[in-house]
């Protein structure tokens, strides 16, 4: 599928292809559009660096709270990684299960509408997840987190004291998990459906049960795609803004405690909260944090893509 389908007119066998003016114009336009992608991406990097530069070079005393840029960004990076990790841990197993349900378990008639529902999850705006999280999920989580801090308080994650509003890292992570579930699920479903029918039927013919067939044929076949899909989900979770902005009660503390009302902010949420009221050097500082976020998500996405292309090159998928 990845190879371009054809190149008929260029290779008629004899050598030279006939190039008409229309061809030249059209292919020129197409190439220009392709190059636009590279230009836009380079533009994003250049303009962000340009705007972040004043903050990077400014003396420490001019920066917000008189802290150095690294001290300003580090808690935000920590919060970003923590919330995304929670999201990934919850979302990936669920996404694999949902994908298997649509590809192998559910009857054909149901599985179609099921995929629509999952796709619909992806289309719901993040701001709505945010207000749902704070209005419904947060309050619903309070008794659970209270119980966790009472009985499992010795685990650092549930140290407490439990928040009484539900505006915790755990709830933010859960909402992020819901938001990335469809992304991971779409990738997994796609590859599970592409598992060669012959392999699956051979396994069944050898007497494997359906679950054994899934475990021994479908899952190994889809493994690299699931890894890549998870990384894409991670990339989305790292950059997700509004859900965290609205849900999390932020104090800037660095802590692994997931259920208290004192939480580190995330890079994206911090920008959304501060940017509208900022001016001067503060704006440059925020853009510098945005640059860090861009670099992190870029690294994650490039890593994911490299996995995929390496597996494809090796012949497996």
């Amino acid at each position: 599928m990845s190879a371009g389908p054809i190149s008929a007119p260029e290779a008629p066998g004899s050598g030279k292809a006939i190039r008409r003016p229309g061809d030249r114009v059209f292919s020129g336009l197409a190439i220009a559009a392709g190059l636009t992608i590279l230009i836009v991406l380079a533009g994003v990097a250049i303009f962000l660096i340009g705007e972040a530069w004043p903050a990077i070079t400014a003396p420490v005393s001019d920066l917000p709270d008189g802290k150095s840029l690294i001290h300003y960004i580090w808690p935000l990076v920590f919060g970003t990684l923590l919330s995304s990790t929670i999201a990934i841990i919850i979302a990936v197993p669920m996404a694999i299960a949902v994908a298997l349900f649509t590809s192998h378990i559910a009857p054909k008639a149901i599985s179609m509408s099921v995929s629509y529902l999952v796709d619909l999850l992806a289309a719901i705006p993040s701001i709505i997840y945010g207000i749902w999280g704070i209005a419904v999920l947060g309050p619903a989580s309070v008794p659970v987190t209270q119980w966790l801090s009472d009985h499992f308080g010795f685990i650092p994650f549930f140290d407490g004291p439990a928040s009484t509003t539900g505006r915790t890292m755990l709830v933010a992570g859960l909402v992020l998990a819901l938001m990335i579930l469809p992304i991971v699920c779409a990738v997994a479903r796609e590859v599970f459906q592409q598992t060669p029918k012959g392999l699956q039927e051979s396994a069944l013919a050898l007497g494997a049960t359906r679950w054994e067939m899934i475990r021994m044929v479908v899952l190994p076949f889809g493994r690299s795609a699931v890894v890549a899909g998870s990384m894409l989900g991670l990339g989305r979770a790292l950059g997700e803004t509004m859900a965290v902005t609205i849900i999390l009660s932020v104090t800037g503390t660095i802590t692994f405690d997931l259920i208290s009302s004192e939480n580190p902010s995330t890079i994206a949420a911090n920008i959304a909260l501060q940017f509208p009221e900022s001016s001067g050097l503060d704006v440059n500082v925020l853009i510098a944090t945005g640059l860090v976020l861009f670099a992190i998500t870029l690294a994650v996405n490039m890593f994911a893509r490299t996995i995929i292309s390496r597996r494809e090159a090796a012949g497996g998928r």
Partner: peptide
């Protein structure tokens, strides 16, 4: 490759750009 990378740009970064 870069289309895939562009897919992953966080929306807030697009705004900052």
């Amino acid at each position: 490759f870069f289309v895939d990378v562009m897919m992953g740009i966080p929306s807030i970064v697009a705004g900052l750009f």
